[in-house]
Design a protein around this nucleic acid. Structure first.
Length: 502
RNA sequence: UCCCCGAUAGCUCAAUCGGUAGAGCGAGCGGCUGUUAACCGCUAGGUCGUAGGUUCGAGUCCUACUCGGGGAGCCA
């Protein structure tokens, strides 16, 4: 059967030919003796036109009553038509229905996030989710391609682990045959072993954090790629990172322009993502945050928000006045629907207005020594049109394995990469402490159990070399590239705090 | 753990001062040969999140709880 079917994406090569497509009903409009069915088959969308006299009365009646997401095959001739979704349509001569769906819960009108998440198993078929999934596929593929083509060897690190990469308390505990174990929160420590074997390696898989974070940037299970490279210094590492990220962006622009357009992502600004990225030290970043420039920037932003709010309120008032007058029913309906959208926009802008002074205060009170907060990162990234590397964080704010900077022992040789347009951190990386005694002292300072880290210390005993790496969050990268506000839409089955659906 | 917001039909939302529960979509029936979230007519659809309280009267006011959304901290 499969061999006899033509993919919708291949219709352009079959104009005026007779083909059969197989898929699901996205939308159906009967119009007397004519039916329009928009079919999706996983490769694209196609409008099928059914004229009553061309098929049997029985079949016509059956097709006319098909609900959304009914499955069927349709046979007919392909015609180029600019009015049609995708530019081609099928003039149907025959059809075979596999499943008549009724009461499909996701309708063409808008739905709340709670409802969509409860119907996640079906929501994945919708257009936005389909587009994000296609981009995700490209991103994952680009990650593997870049690393494989540049001499990195894949090392699969364990998901069940007995040790902690950074801070405990934010890990999922597992009862491992009555022994305590954790779900991994990073493959880094293990992948370093591989680096000393192959020189350049990476691990790529799911990772788990039990942080009780309810924000648009957090999942408890997410995918992360972690390259690790030997015989490098921090400038080398930044260069590798910017080449890596630029390659991913370029691949997505090449392969998913249609999807990006549908999703409404900012293609022009993505085209600017080429090396070099901006480089700031943590100290420079903290100076920016506490500067007058930042206060002015945020004040200007606040004014912009207030203007937007006023505009929305004016629109709402005008529509409400119009709705009170004597107008046609269809116009009343349209106004009602516009009002719903406007009120939602209004709520969003009000939240921004409410948060702006808080963020301004946090930035102005920023003290050297603290980690950069989410809002601080947002401010810095909004002030730049390309990704920003923030390097040399205070040693006390960072993980034990990060290499102390010889020139400024208060800091470590690490970096965070902030995506532009306010999305914030998508990469965290560092040079690793390669001096045995310094690492040992750090493990003791943190109060970690030495026996758990003996093997990790061995890497510094037997042929230690300068090395470093980073972790890139796949869902955060996707949210940035697609313009999606929340990373829960960037993975098929998101796991969030207090929520596991199917 | 803390702060803010919310919960009304299957879905998205209205309901003015505390006074008879509303609309669109979706579903069902009928009409329409070029629709793009089509359109037109009709029908069905409700324990207003839960439990108390105030009141002649509560979707509306008060208290607690539950669930959800956004943010802080933390992070990819």
């Amino acid at each position: 059967m499969l061999k006899e079917l033509t993919k919708i994406s291949c219709l352009k090569d079959n104009v005026d030919k007779n083909v059969t497509i197989g898929g699901w009903v996205r939308h159906l409009r009967p119009s007397g003796k004519l039916i329009f069915i928009v079919i999706r088959d996983g490769s694209g969308l196609c409008q099928c036109v059914i004229e009553k006299e061309k098929i049997s009365d029985e079949l016509f009646e059956q097709l006319k009553r098909l609900g959304a997401e009914s499955s069927l095959t349709l046979t007919g001739s392909v015609r180029k038509d600019a009015r049609s979704v995708g530019g081609y349509e099928l003039i149907v001569s025959d059809a075979k229905v596999f499943c008549e769906s009724t009461d499909y819960p996701i309708t063409p009108k808008s739905h709340g996030i709670d409802f969509l998440m409860k119907n996640r198993h079906l929501h994945l078929r919708s257009q936005r989710q389909w587009c994000i999934g296609k981009v995700r596929h490209t991103v994952v593929n680009a990650i593997r391609q870049f690393l494989n083509d540049n001499g990195y060897v894949l090392v699969d690190t364990p998901i069940l682990t007995g040790i902690v990469g950074e801070e405990a308390g934010s890990l999922f505990n597992v009862d491992y045959f009555d022994m305590p174990a954790f779900m991994t929160q990073t493959g880094q420590l293990h992948v370093e072993c591989g680096a000393m074997s192959y020189g350049k390696v990476y691990c790529f898989g799911p990772t788990f954090r039990a942080e009780k974070s309810k924000t648009r940037r957090h999942l408890t299970e997410f995918w992360m790629v972690e390259p690790e490279i030997t015989f490098i210094d921090l400038p080398d590492l930044l260069e590798i990172t910017e080449n890596f990220v630029s390659f991913i962006v370029k691949e997505v622009l090449d392969k998913n322009e249609t999807e990006l357009k549908t999703l409404g992502s900012d293609i022009e600004s993505l085209k600017k993502i080429t090396p070099p990225f901006y480089r700031l030290t943590y100290t420079q970043a903290s100076e920016i945050l506490t500067s007058q420039k930042t206060q002015d920037f945020l004040a200007a932003q606040l004014n912009e928000f207030k203007t937007q709010k006023q505009e929305i309120e004016n629109k709402i008032a005008a529509l409400e006045t119009e709705a009170k007058g004597q107008i046609k029913q269809w116009r009343q309906d349209k106004i009602a629907s516009e009002l719903i959208d406007l009120r939602s926009d209004l709520a969003e802008i009000e939240t921004k207005i409410e948060n702006n002074p808080k963020h301004a205060k946090l930035a102005s009170q920023f003290q050297w020594g603290k980690d950069l907060g989410g809002s601080d990162e947002t401010i810095i990234s909004l002030m730049h049109d390309k990704p920003v590397f923030v390097t040399h964080y205070p040693r006390d704010a960072k993980a034990f394995y990060m290499k102390q900077d010889p020139e400024n022992p208060e800091t470590v040789q690490n970096f965070d990469m902030l995506a532009p347009a306010g999305f914030g951190e998508i990469i965290g990386g560092s040079m690793r402490e390669d001096i045995h005694d310094k690492l040992l002292a750090r493990i003791n300072e943190q109060g970690y159990k030495l026996e758990n880290y003996q093997w990790y210390l061995d890497l510094r005993k037997f042929g230690s070399v300068p090395h470093g790496g980073f972790g890139l969050g796949v869902e955060r990268t996707l949210a940035w590239l697609t313009g999606e506000k929340h990373i829960r839409q960037c993975i098929a089955f998101p796991r969030m705090m207090d929520k596991i659906l199917i």
